[in-house]
Amino acid sequence: MALAVSHLVGGYSQIPVLKDISFQVEPGELVGLIGLNGAGKSTTINHIIGLLTPMKGAITLNGVTLASDAQQYKQQLAYIPETPILYEELTLKEHLEMTMLAYGLDQTKAWERANKLLKTFRLDNKLDWFPANFSKGMKQKVMIVCAFLTDAKLFIIDEPFLGLDPLAVHDLLHLIGEVKANGASVLMSTHVLDTAEKFCDRFVLLHDGTIQTQGTFDEIKAAYPDAGESLNDIYLSLTGVTRDE
């Protein structure tokens, strides 16, 4: 397996947000991490990318942990945050160059890949632009280009659909399909459950810091036959939320 989260207990203080959660993301698989606000999605992601240290449990990426080899662990991972994080003093071109250096990419091959991505997301004529010139959606596209420029084994994508136009959403889903076909793993946190239902291979449903259930949509639907027909209905039923709320 690419990513293994085992009995993870963690959070931002002595009181844990995550309460003994375990799940895996296999090579070539897109797993949807879903839950209401406060369920623990961001806390889980922050532990995986190394911003938080587990209180208990372990996180391994292709057998490597942050403690055993931080550089190898981080070079296997690409992260697209919900809110774009760019350096205001760097142009788009310089962001790409920094990504290539950070991941030790071959410059010639990396620029071939970058040029294709830039055209896909209609940024190819904006290499000299600074972040102040970009809209929120364009900043999000810059983060996507930088992430998919890499040879990462695991892509972590946090709420990718909220700031993107429909064409960009289509292009992102196509990219996810490409990296999956090449054996990479993808963990995606999202509130857009109708899209997740169509494209994710499996789901991890978080509620109040615990895993409510996990599996394919068909497995979850079979386990909770009275919860509803859609992923949205099933999730609301399992978390005790009614439509009126």
Score class of each variant (00 low, 15 high):
Ala39Thr: 07
Ser42Asn: 06
Glu88Ser: 15
His207Ala: 10
His7Ala: 14
Ile176Cys: 06
Glu245Ser: 09
Pro166Cys: 12
Tyr79Phe: 15
Leu238Gln: 03
Ala168Lys: 04
Asp218Trp: 00
Leu127Met: 09
Gly10Gln: 11
Ala102Gly: 09
Ala222Met: 05
Gln24Asp: 13
Leu172Arg: 05
His174Ser: 14
Phe134Asn: 03
Ala196Tyr: 11
Leu167Asn: 02
Gln140Asp: 03
Thr239His: 01
Leu8His: 05
Gly228Asn: 04
Val17Ser: 11
Gly10Arg: 10
Leu154Asp: 06
Glu26Leu: 13
Asp151Thr: 07
Gln75Lys: 15
Leu206Asn: 02
Asp151Asn: 14
Lys141Gly: 05
Asp128Tyr: 09
Ser42Glu: 07
Gly137Asn: 08
Leu30Asp: 01
Cys146Gly: 06
Lys126Gln: 15
Lys119Cys: 12
Ala168Gln: 09
His191Gly: 04
Lys56Asn: 11
Gln75Thr: 12
Leu238Asn: 02
His47Met: 10
Thr65Ala: 01
Phe155Leu: 00
Gly215Met: 04
Val25Asn: 01
Ser13Ala: 14
Gly137Asp: 10
Val17Asn: 06
Val17His: 09
Asp226Ser: 11
Glu197Thr: 02
Ser22Trp: 09
Ser68Val: 03
Ser42Trp: 08
Leu206Tyr: 07
Pro166Val: 13
Asp151Ser: 02
Val241Thr: 14
Leu173Lys: 13
Glu88Ala: 15
Leu175Ile: 13
Tyr12Ser: 05
Glu29Ser: 05
Thr60Glu: 15
Pro160Met: 11
Thr43Met: 10
Thr65Pro: 01
Leu118Asp: 12
Ala196Cys: 08
Lys136Glu: 02
Phe134Asp: 01
Leu173Ala: 03
Phe121Gln: 08
Asn125Cys: 00
Ile157Cys: 07
Phe161Gln: 00
Val5Gln: 05
Gly104Thr: 05
Gly163Met: 11
Leu236Glu: 02
His47Gly: 04
Pro131Lys: 10
Ser13Gln: 12
His174Asp: 15
Gln107Glu: 15
Gln71Ala: 13
Gly177Met: 07
Ile48Asp: 00
Leu96Arg: 04
Thr210Arg: 15
Lys139Ala: 11
Gly137Ile: 10
Val9Ser: 04
Glu26Val: 04
Leu118Trp: 07
Gln76Phe: 01
Leu36Ile: 14
Leu149Cys: 12
Ile234Arg: 01
Lys56Thr: 09
Arg113Pro: 04
Met138Asn: 02
Glu245Asn: 05
Asn37Met: 10
Thr120Ala: 13
Ile157Gln: 07
Asp201Glu: 08
Thr190Phe: 12
Thr83Ile: 13
Leu205Tyr: 08
Leu90Thr: 08
Ser189Leu: 08
Lys41Thr: 04
Leu36His: 14
Lys139Gly: 10
Pro225Tyr: 03
Lys180Phe: 11
Lys126Trp: 14
Leu236Ile: 06
Ala39Asn: 05
